[in-house]
Amino acid sequence: MHSFFGKQLPVAVAFFSGVLMIITFFSGDQTVADFSQEQLVWVTIVGGFSLLLGVASITRVSLSDVRKRRKGWPYKAVLLIFLVASSLGAIIEGTERGTLYDWLFQNMNAPMMSTMFSLLAFYIASAAYRAFRARTVEATILLITATIVMLGRVPLGELIYGKLPEITDWIMNYPNLSVQRGIIIGAALGAASMSLRIILGIERTYLGRQ
């Protein structure tokens, strides 16, 4: 029973749900299209629940920390208070403008998330100063291109040398584009073969420990 639900059934389900998507692409049949549309709707629903899994996990860990008064528990209590406020606000009142849920997001969550990512500006500046060295020919090419692009993409660069934006456009549209294209093709082939392995049941690591 355990092996059926834990192994055979999941592999079979992955096979059929994957193959259906492939058949739909090639078949013009209306019944197949309807069936696969139904599956897509189902996947959006199940996918939604999987997002809540992380929330359930963080709640469990934080609750346990607070209950056992582990180090830093007051912070976890704050976390739980805001988690509950935002969730209950949404469930009771809704999510549109003017609700507590939206207010918490616009005035607290969004500014904090924006600021967290803006810290990276400082770190990247510091890292560029410390690690960006013209040690080899390759590193020198990297450094020169980065400098041209950094100047060529801001108005000041144009004032320094009028042709910098054009040179930057050329770099982006030829050498950069060709490498990105190579990577896109290579990665796509890799992803396609990985998908095939999943559908055929060769790749099963997504199922977790067996």
């Binding site: 500006a121 990247i124 500046a125 560029a128 100063y129 410390r130 960006f132 060295r133 013209a134 040690r135 450094l143 400098t147 950094m150 100047l151 801001v154 108005p155 000041l156 660069g157």
Partner: peptide, 23 residues
């Protein structure tokens, strides 16, 4: 934001040059 964008890029480039000179 373009004024700030320009100046910070210039500052970072100067730091890269300083780092390389020192190295």
């Amino acid at each position: 934001g373009m004024g700030a964008q320009s100046l910070v890029h210039l500052t970072i480039i100067i730091f890269i040059l300083i780092g390389n000179f020192a190295y």
